[in-house]
Amino acid sequence: EPLWIRPDAPSRCTWQLGRPASESPHHHTAPAKSPKILPDILKKIGDTPMVRINKIGKKFGLKCELLAKCEFFNAGGSVKDRISLRMIEDAERDGTLKPGDTIIEPTSGNTGIGLALAAAVRGYRCIIVMPEKMSSEKVDVLRALGAEIVRTPTNARFDSPESHVGVAWRLKNEIPNSHILDQYRNASNPLAHYDTTADEILQQCDGKLDMLVASVGTGGTITGIARKLKEKCPGCRIIGVDPEGSILAEPEELNQTEQTTYEVEGIGYDFIPTVLDRTVVDKWFKSNDEEAFTFARMLIAQEGLLCGGSAGSTVAVAVKAAQELQEGQRCVVILPDSVRNYMTKFLSDRWMLQKGFLKEEDLTEKKPWWWHLRVQELGLSAPLTVLPTITCGHTIEILREKGFDQAPVVDEAGVILGMVTLGNMLSSLLAGKVQPSDQVGKVIYKQFKQIRLTDTLGRLSHILEMDHFALVVHEQIQYHSTGKSSQRQMVFGVVTAIDLLNFVAAQERDQK
């Protein structure tokens, strides 16, 4: 057995438009009618409502009807409940999964919650491996369901041993009777949507819809739904939504950006999952974080739909894509998950301010006199920076000697690579993860907040409520011999709460 199987392995699926269902090699399930009293909570997966979006479509000038398939009504709160249950049931049916076995899954959280929910009911041990950027709410729900959680670096490539995929496979090879159901490759993922989600949409719309818009992560949702719609409703256009920084969209030119990270969760990847059939997507749109969270908040405030950030991405694209539809036509959007997962993220004004998705003037509360002053007023001194090749031991000596707790790590040209902190280095040394002679590049981390000289002290204040420091950066445009230009970030300084307090105190003292 291989040590790991690539999540982007070539698909062996034989589905073709027009091929009889009787030739399918898979076990198919028909939607079942729910009894009045459910035998367990797993029976509350599927049969989610279709809700008309009344205000947002009109606000953006849509002539067509805009409908939302509300997947956050599933038992675990997301569309991923469907595939989690289906993968477990299919693994039980073919004898792969037996009582007492362990389920391991690399996930952005929602599939993990679905699997942990099913594992709690069915009696399996469950280990979820997820990147650090995923919300604390997801972690809390997983723990409450009895799952064990392993976190991995957000910026690790999918084929790196440190990625959530790599760590999951390492655990599988170490733990007896453990299984990775593997949402990236498992046919049960798109089949769950082909058999149930798509049929529900067709039934709820009486077979009449002209466009379907869905955000894409593993691709199982859009693949399964689109294949069924292509068979039953061939005139329906399928629109895929991919965040900026991901590479799922086609044509490839759409993916060209210097951005590699994004805040919206559960969609987009740096590889093409095996289950994603991009041939059934008629057109791709890219979405960005700001519009995703703005539209998610709009869905909550104006439509009462308590959905997550990827739902915002989907609707932001839908109001663009559906401009081509006329009166009497219908566009369906998939709202994948609930706001429950993001209470401390985009639902929080403070978080939105820190990330730059909300401006101070958007909030009406009274601010102190210094709130709208610029960061450049602080008069920061030149920063202490270190090269990635310097040793951890030497870096600790320098920081202690100069009285700093942290320093930016830059390359020879001064471009920011990340940050090192005294606390992080000492804990890594004590844990045996690094040696004093190791290069400081081994303990770089990139989960820090950046701020510009033109940003306000109010925004800085919000950042420092949650973080010990902020890195002050400025952009530099560099022209190359080819005539092309590129933008790079340079370090201007490091600012802490002490710097802000000293500035405010000094100004008030001078005024007296």
Rank of each mutant, 00 (worst) to 15 (best):
A296M: 06
N341E: 04
V280R: 11
L422V: 14
V491L: 13
I398K: 15
R509G: 14
R278G: 07
V472H: 02
Q487L: 11
S313V: 08
W284D: 02
Q376V: 06
A322M: 06
T364S: 12
N255L: 06
G423S: 08
G493C: 14
S348F: 06
Y262T: 10
D455R: 05
I267L: 02
K320H: 05
T421V: 11
T257S: 12
T274Y: 04
E303F: 04
S437I: 11
S486T: 14
Y269Q: 02
E265L: 02
A311S: 15
Q447M: 10
L426G: 11
G458R: 14
D499K: 10
T279N: 10
H462N: 05
Y445C: 09
T260P: 02
M352A: 04
Q376D: 07
D455V: 11
L347S: 11
G441I: 10
Y445L: 11
L276S: 06
K442C: 13
V333A: 14
G309D: 04
V473Y: 10
V315R: 07
A321L: 10
F271I: 02
G312A: 02
R278V: 02
L426V: 10
A322N: 07
I416H: 04
C331M: 12
T294H: 15
A321K: 02
V440E: 05
P368Y: 15
Q376I: 04
W351G: 02
L347I: 12
T364A: 05
D349C: 02
Q376N: 10
H474F: 10
T260M: 15
W369Q: 05
W370R: 14
V420S: 13
G356R: 06
M490A: 07
K402P: 15
E360M: 11
L305I: 08
C392W: 10
H372Q: 14
C331Q: 06
Q487S: 11
Q476S: 07
P408S: 06
S485F: 13
Y342I: 06
T454R: 06
V315W: 02
A497L: 02
T274E: 04
A382V: 13
L335C: 15
C392P: 10
A382I: 02
T391S: 12
L299T: 15
A321N: 02
C307L: 06
D282N: 13
P368F: 08
S348T: 12
L358P: 05
G393M: 11
F503Q: 04
T482K: 05
K286H: 02
V409K: 02
P368R: 15
P368A: 08
L378S: 08
V494L: 13
L426K: 11
C331H: 02
T391P: 14
Q489G: 02
P436H: 13
T454I: 08
S437Q: 15
A292C: 09
K355C: 04
H372G: 14
T421N: 02
E401T: 02
T389Y: 10
Q439W: 14
E361G: 11
C392Y: 13
L422S: 10
L254Y: 05
H474Q: 15
V280D: 13
T389R: 14
V332R: 02
G423C: 05
R297M: 04
Q489R: 02
T421Q: 13
L422Q: 06
L378D: 04
Q435I: 12
D242A: 04
Y269L: 02
E290C: 15
A506C: 10
S461I: 02
A322P: 04
V434A: 14
I272G: 07
V504K: 14
M343N: 08
K359S: 11
K442W: 11
S246Q: 02
L384C: 07
K355R: 11
T279Y: 12
S485W: 12
A407T: 14
R452I: 05
D411F: 09
T294I: 11
M343E: 05
A321F: 06
T482G: 02
T389Q: 02
D282T: 11
V332N: 02
R452F: 11
A296R: 02
L453I: 14
D411W: 10
P336R: 13
G379H: 07
G483I: 06
A505V: 14
L363E: 08
A407Y: 11
K449Y: 13
P383I: 10
Q329C: 12
K345G: 05
I416S: 11
P408C: 06
E303V: 02
A301I: 10
E258M: 08
G356S: 06
R459W: 10
L373K: 06
H372P: 02
H394G: 02
S310I: 13
F293V: 02
D362M: 10
L306Q: 02
K283M: 09
G268L: 04
Q489F: 14
V332Y: 02
I272P: 02
T496S: 12
E327Y: 02
V504Y: 11
